[in-house]
Computed example of a mutant assay.
Amino acid sequence: MPYPEGHKQKVRGQIIESAAKAFRKNGIREISVPVIMKGAGLTHGGFYAHFENKEQLVSEACCYAVTEGIALMGKLADREKEKPRIHTVIDYYLSPYHRDHPEIGCILPALSSEISRSSEEVRQIFTRELERMIHFISDLAGIDKSTGSALLSTMVGTLMLARSVNDPGLSESLLASGRQHAKELIKA
């Protein structure tokens, strides 16, 4: 019996979603194709019917995760009525919740250190997605691209450090300082 129309695209989407979650939580090198496929509810034998290799999946997972992140931050900003929309995004991005849930968070702090050692193809896709995120942040804040780059860099770096330390007080302090300085950067 043949699969219904759209089945292959649906399965491919499940694999990409599973990979995006796994890569954000554990990085690229620590996650195998069988783990990704299991997360999608599939056996690893079907992977190559959808992707040429793991690098292609990394690229597509980056695109998916950035699209998902921009949509989430856009929805959060759209709900805000009392303060600048970009402040809502900064508060979310540099929150304990975002720090503690990398599997659903921004892919930029999760993969930045690994991407620099990836293939040129993966780095090209990551660069494009980073630029898309800078554009989103800049537009939302009403700032130029240079300031948007600095703002996003502050947010990503702060989150990376807050996730890296084993001292909860220091982690909270990093997040609070990052939120304060990110908001001051917009005013400058």
Rank of each mutant, 00 (worst) to 15 (best):
R117T: 05
R117I: 01
R117Y: 08
S118D: 06
S118C: 07
S119M: 06
S119G: 08
E120C: 10
E120D: 10
E120S: 13
E120T: 01
E121Y: 07
V122R: 07
V122L: 08
V122T: 11
R123Y: 00
R123N: 02
Q124L: 06
I125M: 04
I125V: 15
I125A: 07
F126T: 00
F126S: 05
F126C: 02
F126R: 05
F126Y: 00
F126H: 00
T127F: 08
R128L: 14
R128V: 11
R128I: 11
E129V: 06
E129Y: 09
E129G: 04
E129R: 08
L130T: 01
L130F: 06
E131Q: 11
E131W: 10
R132G: 15
M133I: 09
I134D: 02
H135I: 00
F136L: 03
F136N: 04
I137C: 01
I137M: 14
S138A: 15
D139W: 09
D139F: 03
D139K: 12
L140M: 15
L140H: 08
G142L: 13
G142T: 09
I143H: 03
I143T: 00
I143N: 12
D144N: 14
D144H: 11
S146A: 13
T147A: 01
T147M: 02
T147Y: 07
G148H: 09
G148T: 11
G148W: 07
G148A: 07
G148L: 07
A150P: 10
A150K: 01
A150C: 15
L151F: 14
L151N: 10
L151I: 11
L152I: 06
S153A: 11
S153M: 10
S153V: 01
T154E: 01
T154H: 06
T154Q: 04
